[in-house]
């Protein structure tokens, strides 16, 4: 027990020995894990988007800019009586403010309110019941187009098709992609950590020569590897979260209203866990051939 604790400590102190090598190793691990996390984040959000498109269709409706707002409000009231699941409306002013909000730049709001370039808009969602999806989509669209003053209905059947295809493909490709990413991350991280441990190959050989058991030699290395993996994974998640906070709202304005979600808890746990295992495994490989 005393020996084990000693070896554990040794594994930790070994990390402090060659600070630059440690720094570069950790940077590589963090960078690789960060890229993997980013990839995961993008995939995850695409998946979410695909799922929401599957459940409903959105039309972005733009009115003529000079159409009196009173008449537009009347039409909004009428539309909400249709068989739709939601309608979100924006007067030019509301649209401007939420746009300014999401951009958070020094927009000259005062000036823009006087010369507002935005038209009244509405975001209409309805669900696709099985069977007559395509037909209903076309119906609602032409009904919207027929309203006087409607300038444009932002909906593209191609988009719908794309969404559908994406769902079909993604469920088949989502896990293989994640698997591929895991393998690549694993290889890069494992190799980096392995090279890092190779610096200590002389020491490992000498320990073996003077009668150290392989457990005695490997345990501290495995601890170092595990710590590097864990710390690298955790820091990369931290970085990813910072990036996420910076961009989560960039698409959150009318008519997109897409909020980028962060990774769910399972993934958050998985990143450092996987990297820790990779760290342990690569340390194991690094010295395996050095014990004779």
């Amino acid at each position: 027990m005393r020996v084990l604790a000693g070896l554990f400590l040794q594994g930790l102190t070994n990390l402090g020995r060659n600070k630059w090598a440690q720094f570069f190793t950790l940077s590589t691990v963090i960078f690789t894990a960060f890229m993997a996390g980013l990839f995961l984040l993008v995939l995850y959000n695409l998946q979410l988007a695909a799922r929401s498109t599957q459940e409903g269709i959105q039309f972005q409706v733009y009115w003529d800019q000079d159409k009196p707002l009173e008449e537009v409000r009347e039409q909004w009231k009428e539309i909400s009586t249709w068989d739709i699941s939601a309608i979100t409306t924006f007067t030019p002013e509301e649209a401007l403010y939420s746009l300014a909000d999401s951009l958070s730049a020094d927009l000259d709001i005062e000036f823009l309110t006087l010369h507002n370039p935005l038209p009244p808009t509405a975001l209409i969602e309805f669900s696709l019941q099985d069977g007559y999806g395509e037909d209903r989509t076309r119906q609602v669209r032409s009904k919207l187009m027929d309203l006087p003053g409607v300038q444009r209905v932002g909906f593209n059947p191609l988009q719908l098709d794309l969404a559908r295809t994406w769902i079909r493909v993604s469920s088949g490709i989502f896990w293989p992609l994640i698997g591929l990413m895991l393998v690549i991350t694993g290889l890069v991280v494992a190799n980096t950590l392995k090279l890092n441990q190779m610096q200590r190959r002389e020491e490992v050989e000498i320990l073996a020569l003077v009668g150290a058991s392989s457990g005695y030699i490997q345990f501290p290395l495995l601890i170092s590897g595990a710590v590097q993996g864990l710390v690298g994974g955790a820091l990369s998640l931290g970085l990813l979260r910072v990036l996420h906070l910076a961009v989560e709202d960039v698409l959150y304005f009318p008519p997109l209203w897409v909020r980028i979600e962060f990774l769910p808890p399972l993934y958050i746990l998985a990143v450092p866990a996987v990297l820790t295992l990779v760290g342990i495994f690569s340390s194991f490989l690094a010295v395996r051939s050095r014990l004779r």
Partner: peptide, 22 residues
């Protein structure tokens, strides 16, 4: 077996020509 080699080395010590010290 290789994994018991360390037991041999606890009885048989060696001084290498190139020392092999740290």
């Amino acid at each position: 077996p290789e994994k018991r080699l360390y037991q041999l080395r606890r009885q048989v010590a060696i001084v290498f020509q190139d020392f092999r010290i740290l």
